[in-house]
Computed example of a mutant assay.
Amino acid sequence: MKLLLIGSASVHTFRYLAGIAPHVEVVHLVSSGPLPERYHAANLGRVEQVDFSLRALRTASRIAALIDELQPDMVHVHQANSVAWHARRALAGKTTPWLLTTWGSDVLLLPQQNALMKRMVAANLAAASAVSSDSLHMAAVCRQLAPLQRMDVLNFGMDALPAEPDIAAKPLSVLSCRLHKPLYRIDAIVRAWAEVEADARFAGWSLTVAASGSETDALLKLARSLQLQRIHFTGFVAPDVLAGLYRDARVFVSVPESDATSISLLEAMGHGCLPLLSNLPANLEWVLDGVNGAIVEDVARLGAALKTQLLRASDDAQLAEAVALNRRLVQEKGLQQANMARFAQIYRELL
């Protein structure tokens, strides 16, 4: 099977390419940036760089010409935004089946911007031979936006289930590793941490804030203004370093305003962290409040919720019970190898 993958220059696109490559004869890529060397598969074919902005009116014709030249058996498009808009126009009139995978903001946030964006997303969804999403909630939103020919609920999965964590050896550490963008509300985590540092019960706890983004400088300034002593900003870290941060954390906190099933959540669950999450439908598909993690109803009260989870995570027995359940969930439906095989099966069924 010859696969043409079309997606933005994101680590998610690149991880998917590396994961699906063993299941196809050759995989070609159309993206908005270069493919890092570490994601080059042995059967990688052409790699083309294009502009996916709505102003790039020649992109569709470039993709169409590439399809005519390569004659792929299957086209897989990632994100129902302008990426799919260009791909849909390129595929118009062709018989090549194509799968459209939604990522989250493309169907949860973009259609709310204005009527034009909503029509574009709906048209992209309706034109695809099949659509996939990584949560039941996103699948329902897609069906509300447009009539679909087929829908599959399937996530990309984490690379592999880590070794069984040594709960007793875990330090008293909290981890935040989402991007420093307004969507992820890292500032709310920093302010909540100020409440933790002010409480003598948690004198031994520390917070690690990994990743980076447009708000990094503002977050550093906020931490200084709050005179926080036990917060550490790492910046962007390599995957092996991030894995170590997960292993060392007892609590993982992530409170975005909107989200699908995030790989970071699966990684945190797999490595033995107790998740503290915002009240989003996709999160509720993985975490039951008070059982294998916690859901904070109001981010304004994140400080109190965080302190409650620190008390729970301080108890090795309670943490071990939640970790066992979380690792079982990841094993059953959150591993890349098994989920890539399921994507390949979707390809075969469409063909």
Rank of each mutant, 00 (worst) to 15 (best):
L5G: 14
I6Y: 13
G7I: 13
E25V: 09
V27W: 12
H28C: 08
H28K: 10
H28S: 08
L29A: 15
S31I: 09
S32A: 14
L35H: 15
E37Y: 08
Y39D: 15
Y39E: 14
H40N: 12
L44G: 13
V47T: 15
V47P: 11
E48H: 14
L54P: 06
T59Q: 13
P72M: 10
D73A: 13
D73Q: 15
M74G: 10
M74F: 15
H76G: 12
S82W: 15
V83Q: 14
A84W: 03
R88V: 08
A92T: 12
K94T: 13
L99V: 15
T101H: 15
S105Q: 04
V107D: 05
L109W: 01
Q113S: 01
Q113P: 01
N114P: 04
M117N: 13
K118V: 01
R119M: 12
R119T: 09
R119W: 11
M120Q: 12
A123D: 14
A128S: 12
S133G: 11
S133F: 04
D134P: 01
H137C: 06
A140T: 10
R143L: 02
A146D: 02
P147S: 10
P147D: 11
M151S: 04
V174R: 03
D187L: 02
A188T: 00
A194V: 01
E195L: 11
E197M: 07
A198T: 07
D199T: 10
A200V: 11
R201P: 09
R201I: 03
F202R: 06
S206Y: 06
L207A: 07
V209L: 14
V209P: 02
G213C: 00
T216S: 12
T216C: 00
D217V: 05
D217T: 08
L220E: 06
L220W: 04
A223E: 03
R224I: 00
L226K: 02
Q227K: 13
I231T: 12
F233E: 07
V241D: 11
V241Q: 13
G244A: 11
G244S: 08
S258Q: 01
A260W: 02
S262G: 00
S262T: 09
L265E: 00
E267R: 05
A268T: 08
G270M: 05
C273W: 03
L274H: 07
L280P: 03
P281Y: 05
A282G: 01
E285L: 05
W286D: 03
W286E: 01
G290R: 05
N292L: 00
E297L: 06
E297Y: 07
R301T: 08
L302V: 04
L306T: 01
T308V: 09
L310C: 06
R312W: 10
S314N: 12
A322I: 03
V323F: 10
A324T: 07
A324D: 11
R327W: 04
R328E: 14
K333E: 08
G334E: 07
L335N: 08
Q336H: 06
Q336D: 08
A338T: 12
A338D: 13
A338G: 11
A338F: 08
M340I: 12
A341F: 11
R342V: 12
R342A: 15
F343L: 15
Y347S: 13
R348G: 09
